[in-house]
């Protein structure tokens, strides 16, 4: 996936400016930066969620397999590029099964067999199957926070996206649940291209192959994670990762 000169606004306010960036296939790309630097905005531009906010505007291109996602229907783009949010947000009125099946079902898949297979596979991929296999008809909100987040990952995987965007997926979770999600991210990159936004630099260092550092709506530096953390080229990057601001 290739991002070309993306800028995004909230009303008159410019949130990110002229960002160009490559995301490698079947790898994990991290985006770090202090709060309000535009990393969530950037990731929301990658599956056209930014434009769901009233008065929001985007300019630039995001190429997936060589085609600009802004030339395609938003709905089909979002099926190919899934998203996991900061706070676990299972559908409160639906059971665990229905949550995972929602993406397929509400896009018109009716066959029970197909749904069953998708739910089973997605829950297994999200490492949640063993914990919920006996309670698939329970409400999604009956699970713990970490389980809910894995349920949301399963829900996103069920529509078989090519890319999975994660917007600070662990910031509402405790260390144990975080470790589980990180293991999961490690497994998922075999099949998916992952982009993870995090304000936790250690997390980026642990899971991401490449890392991009953003500050005040601009992309400051991007490189192999190790290099970026050990030998940052920009002074701003260095002072951020050494904890001098942010």
């Amino acid at each position: 996936m290739h991002v070309d000169k993306i800028s995004a606004w909230y009303g008159p306010k410019l949130a990110i400016q002229d960002i160009s960036l490559d995301f490698e296939e079947h790898s994990v790309s991290g985006i770090i930066g202090p709060s309000g630097c535009g990393k969530s905005t950037l990731i929301r531009c990658l599956n056209r969620m930014h434009e769901t906010i009233p008065k929001a505007k985007v300019e630039g291109q995001v190429l997936l397999d060589g085609q600009d996602i802004y030339d395609q229907p938003a709905v089909s783009v979002r099926r190919r590029i899934g998203m996991v949010f900061q706070k676990p947000n299972p559908f409160p009125t639906m059971s665990i099964y229905d949550n995972v099946a929602a993406g397929l079902r509400l896009n018109g898949v009716r066959e029970r067999k197909k749904l069953d297979v998708a739910v089973l596979e997605s829950l297994k991929q999200a490492a949640l199957w063993d914990e919920v296999k006996d309670s698939l008809d329970k409400s999604g909100s009956s699970l713990s926070g970490g389980q809910q987040q894995r349920l949301c990952i399963a829900r996103a995987l069920a529509v078989r996206p090519e890319v999975l965007l994660m917007d600070e997926p662990c910031s509402a979770l405790d260390p144990i649940a975080t470790a589980k999600i990180e293991d999961l991210i490690f497994d998922l990159k075999k099949d998916y291209t992952l982009v993870i936004v995090t304000h936790n630099m250690q997390q980026a260092a642990r899971v991401a192959e490449t890392t991009a550092f953003m500050y005040l709506g601009k992309l400051i530096e991007v490189g192999r994670t190790r290099e970026l953390f050990e030998r940052p080229r920009e002074a701003l990057t260095e002072s951020y990762i050494t904890g001098r601001f942010g």
């Binding site: 709905v75 979002r78 899934g82 706070k87 559908f91 993406g103 896009n107 949301c152």
Partner: peptide, 20 residues
């Protein structure tokens, strides 16, 4: 967040409103 969850799955807006 409930609306966003549905929209991010590629569910059209009217169906998000009706079903979620």
């Amino acid at each position: 967040s409930a609306r966003e969850a549905a929209l991010a799955l590629g569910i059209p807006r009217y169906r998000t409103i009706l079903r979620v």
